[in-house]
Structure formats: structure tokens, C-alpha cells
């Protein structure tokens, strides 16, 4: 096992890493480009996105016309907004970071090789 000093150093590094992830998801996310990403650009190629009363519609011929709504579309965090409220991407991101850390950290801690004495 690590000496206590090594543990403290590791804890400091891990805490810093987490703070950066929280700042990126909670703050930098407000400055992210809202243009379609590479895949969406390809699936939208050939279509025009038209604003209508019923929301955005695709006109033309493109792959994205085959896209169906996710069964999770009703999630309170769908599309990185809390309950669909604009301007909540940061909080949604922070929740996402914490959930991701809990799931991944829990799985990896469970899977790890146990050191002597555990």
C-alpha cells in the first residue's frame, strides 16, 4: 500500500482532476458550438432544417429523416437540459459528471485486484 503521504498526493491529484471535469461540464459547456457534429452533419446532408409550429422539420432527402426519437427522450435530463429549461446545460453536465463518476468508479473499484489486507 501507499504511504499516507503518497495517498494524500494521490487524493490531491484526483480531486484536481474531478474539479476540472466539473468546470468543463458545468461552465465551459455554455461555450460549446451548437452546430451539428460530424455525424449529424453527414446524416443531415441533403436536408434543410425548417422551423415550423410543430418544431424543426427536415425538408429534402437525408439519412436523419429515418431517425426516431429515443425511448429516453422523456428523461428529465434529455438534451442536456433540466426539464427542457434553457440555460441549464451546466447543471445537467455537473449531474452527468457525478453520475458517470459514480457508475464508473463503482464498477472499477469492484473489479480491481484487491491488495493484501483488503
Amino acid at each position: 500500500m501507499n504511504a499516507p503521504a503518497g495517498n494524500r498526493k494521490a487524493a490531491g491529484f484526483f480531486a484536481g482532476f474531478l474539479v476540472i471535469a466539473l468546470l468543463v461540464a458545468g461552465g465551459l459547456s455554455y461555450f460549446a458550438s451548437s452546430d451539428p457534429d460530424g455525424l449529424d452533419s453527414v446524416t443531415l446532408s441533403g436536408c434543410d432544417v425548417v422551423e415550423t409550429d410543430a418544431g424543426e422539420q427536415l425538408e429534402g432527402a437525408c439519412i436523419a429523416q429515418n431517425a426516431t426519437d429515443s425511448a429516453a427522450a422523456g428523461s428529465p435530463l434529455a438534451d442536456y437540459a433540466i426539464g427542457g429549461v434553457e440555460g441549464t446545460v451546466g447543471l445537467a453536465g455537473v449531474i452527468g459528471v457525478i453520475v458517470t463518476l459514480a457508475v464508473a468508479g463503482g464498477l472499477f473499484w469492484f473489479l480491481r485486484r484487491r491488495s493484501a489486507g483488503d
Binding site: 471535469a21 468543463v24 461540464a25 460549446a32 451548437s34 446545460v89 459528471v97 458517470t100 464508473a104 463503482g106
Partner: peptide, 18 residues
């Protein structure tokens, strides 16, 4: 193991940044 958990959370965060 904790490193891998944090890396996962970091990837989630950075994937938000288009």
C-alpha cells in the same frame, strides 16, 4: 481504479464541448 473512474467522468465532460 479511481483514476479510471475520473477519466470516465472527464470524457463525459469533454464530450459536451463541441
Amino acid at each position: 481504479a479511481p483514476m479510471a473512474g475520473l477519466v470516465t467522468a472527464f470524457v463525459f465532460a469533454v464530450q459536451m464541448i463541441n
